[in-house]
C-alpha cells in the first residue's frame, strides 16, 4: 500500500486551527452554562472542561482532531491520538475512555488507510490506558482524525492554566519546531533525521509529565499546541493574572528548526499566532527574529509547559530527564502582573 496523506493537505495538525483571535470573538457570543459542578470551562481557555461528579471524582472532557501531519496513515493515527489525549494530561488527569472522530474521503482513499489510521489511534490509546469505545465517521476530504477523551481527576487536584503563581519556574517538556519542520518537509527542505525526530516527539505521550506534576503538586500547566509556545504562555498568564517571561535562548528545538526558520521557512500559522499575541507581549528589541518566530510556531502534540515552585524545579527537571524527557528545560519564570502579560528575551 502506497498512500501519502501529506499530498492531500495544505496545513496539517494544529496549524489548521482557526485563528485564536477569531475564535475568541466567536466564543464570546455563547452563553456559558451556570452550574457549580462545572469546575473548568472555556472562560479561561483551558485545555479541557472539568465536571464534578462527587467530592472525590471529576471528569476531564476534551476533543481534538486535525488533518494529516505525515504521509503514513498509521503514524498519523498515533500522532492525532497522542495529541488529543494530551489535554487530559495537561490538567493532571488520568485518561480513561475515548471516541474516534473521523472524516474520511471514501472515494479518494483505499479503505486500508482508514483501518491504519484507526489502528494507530488504538495503539497509542492502549499505551495511555485509554479504551476507545465508539466513534463517528463522516465522508469528507481531506481526511481528519482525532479523539474525544474522558479522564478522571480529583476535584481538588486540577491543574489549570490559571494556576501559575508569581515566582514559579516554567518548565517545557518537549522541544519545539513541529510546525517549521512539517512545513519544511512539504517543501523538501528537511533531512530524514528531522522528520523522524519530529514524528517521535509528536507520538510521545505527556503521561510522564502529568505523573511528575501530580507528585510535586504543580497547580499550573498547559500543553503547547496550535497557538504556539507564546500563544499558550499568554493564555496561561492571562488566566493566572500574572506575567510570564520566556528566555528563548533556553528553548530546546527539534533538529534543524533554527536553520529552517533562518531560511525563511516560517509557516502561516506562526504569523497568525504573532498577530494574536503581540499586543499583549513585550519583545526585547534585539531579540533574534528566528527565535521569536519559533516561539509563535504552531505545535502539534507539543509538550507540557508547567509552572513549578522554584524550590522544586531542579527535582522536577531531573525526574523528567530520568523518564526519558531529556530535553526538558527551564525556559522562563512567572512574576506578578506587569504592564504586559508576556515578555520574550534571549
Amino acid at each position: 500500500m502506497n498512500i501519502d496523506l501529506l499530498q492531500m493537505v495544505e496545513s496539517g495538525g494544529c496549524s489548521a486551527k482557526i485563528p485564536a483571535k477569531q475564535l475568541e470573538e466567536i466564543l464570546r457570543c455563547l452563553p456559558l452554562p451556570d452550574d457549580p459542578d462545572i469546575l473548568v470551562n472555556i472562560e479561561t481557555h483551558d485545555d479541557a472542561g472539568v465536571y464534578r461528579v462527587n467530592d472525590e471524582l471529576a471528569l476531564v472532557f476534551t476533543t481534538d482532531f486535525f488533518p494529516p501531519v505525515c504521509s503514513d496513515p498509521y503514524e498519523f493515527g498515533q500522532i492525532a491520538a497522542a495529541n488529543a489525549i494530551s489535554d487530559v494530561y495537561a490538567m493532571g488527569g488520568k485518561p480513561v475512555i475515548a471516541l474516534n472522530i473521523m472524516m474520511f474521503p471514501a472515494a479518494k482513499l483505499p479503505v486500508d488507510a482508514y483501518k491504519e489510521i484507526l489502528k494507530g489511534g488504538v495503539d497509542i490509546a492502549f499505551r495511555a490506558g485509554v479504551k476507545i469505545i465508539g466513534g463517528h465517521t463522516i465522508d469528507d476530504f481531506p481526511p481528519k482524525y482525532g479523539l474525544a477523551v474522558v479522564g478522571y481527576i480529583h476535584p481538588q487536584k486540577i491543574i489549570t492554566n490559571a494556576g501559575a503563581r508569581s515566582g514559579d519556574i516554567l518548565i517545557l517538556t518537549k522541544p519545539v519546531g513541529t510546525g517549521v519542520i512539517l512545513a519544511g518537509q512539504r517543501l523538501g527542505l528537511t533531512s530524514e533525521s528531522d522528520v523522524s525526530q519530529v514524528k517521535a516527539f509528536m507520538k510521545l505521550l505527556n503521561n510522564s509529565g502529568a505523573d511528575i506534576m501530580n507528585k510535586y503538586d504543580v497547580t499550573g500547566a498547559t500543553d503547547i499546541t496550535g497557538f504556539g509556545l507564546a500563544g499558550h504562555a499568554l493564555k496561561m498568564a492571562r488566566a493566572s493574572s500574572v506575567s510570564i517571561t520566556l528566555n528563548l535562548g533556553r528553548l530546546p528545538l527539534i533538529g534543524s528548526t533554527y536553520a529552517l526558520t533562518d531560511q525563511g521557512c516560517i509557516p502561516g500559522a506562526a504569523f497568525r499566532n504573532l498577530e494574536y499575541v503581540e499586543n499583549e507581549a513585550h519583545v526585547e528589541d534585539d531579540l533574534d527574529y528566528n527565535l521569536k518566530m519559533i516561539a509563535y510556531d504552531a505545535q502539534t502534540s507539543g509538550g507540557l509547559l508547567m509552572a513549578v515552585s522554584p524550590e522544586k524545579a531542579d527535582e522536577v527537571i531531573s525526574e523528567l530527564h530520568n523518564k526519558g524527557l531529556d530535553t526538558s528545560a527551564k525556559i522562563g519564570f512567572v512574576t506578578e502582573k506587569q504592564e504586559k502579560f508576556l515578555y520574550l528575551y534571549k
Binding site: L187, Q263, C265, G268
Partner: peptide, 9 residues
C-alpha cells in the same frame, strides 16, 4: 502558499 514565498524572498 506560505512559507514558500518567504523562503524565496
Amino acid at each position: 502558499q506560505c512559507p514558500a514565498p518567504i523562503l524565496a524572498t
